[in-house]
Design a protein around this nucleic acid. Structure first.
Lengths: 116, 116
DNA sequence: ACAAGACATCGATGGTTGTCAATGTCTTGC
DNA sequence: GCAAGACATTGACAACCATCGATGTCTTGT
């Protein structure tokens, strides 16, 4: 154990100074990564974009499957991922299922990019 | 209960109106998903945060391995992913490798959340 | 030249994920 | 009640990914 305690001097054997500011907490990083993982797929990004592009801010699966070019079960799967992540809500009306954007759900994510 | 004949007639067999605005292009969605995928990992988010927390905005691997609690090869792997995605740059000085944030690299990502 | 150290790369492995076909569960019209 | 349709769920499979130990590469001090 070296006796280093009196020095503000930089140790030449040290590569750089340790971190000064506070970095991301492990739990916060875990939650943020989960949210980003739900968004890091082309199909899901397009789904969010397509739902937002509807004038009434909601869309049913029948209007999403064909423009996306994926099978109906796959689209249903992606929608479920987005609902579980809290970005979309699902409302069943009759035979159709309507998906809507959750207002402010993307804020927690966009806040990270604003701070760092 | 509104009378329906004065409205633009909606087909009762149609679930909802097709999209009015323009949604995300497939290629744009693909590129954005790639960027988000690089960020959607707790270790990589913490690495970016830790690099940003250094007062000189750069950090070497030796200062990142131990706080992260992962093995050195794993940290090296994550740093490579972030470099390949364009979020970090690597500069070798002596025996040490210094990683720095790429200014404005997160802008393309944060722009998406601002628009949608 | 040699040893030590910092970091990258390789190979393997267990876990996760995107996709589809097949099937199940509702709801509605007949 | 039955058939049709919209959507969800299941099962399977290939691809991808995070992680680590072992090893390689390069630099520096002796």
């Amino acid at each position: 154990m070296p006796t280093l305690e009196q020095l503000p001097i930089m140790d030449v054997t040290a590569c750089c100074s340790p971190l000064t500011g506070n970095s991301l907490d492990a739990r916060v990083a875990h939650d943020l990564a989960r949210a980003l993982k739900a968004l890091s797929d082309p199909a899901r990004l397009r789904l969010i974009s397509m739902v937002a592009a509807h004038d009434d801010k909601e869309a049913c699966v029948c209007d999403l499957v064909e423009p996306l070019g994926l099978s109906q079960p796959t689209v249903s799967h992606h929608l479920k991922v987005l609902v579980d992540a809290g970005f979309l809500t699902r409302e069943k009306r009759g035979v159709w299922a309507y998906y809507s954007l959750v207002p402010g759900a993307l804020d927690s994510v966009s806040d990270f990019f604003a701070t760092v």
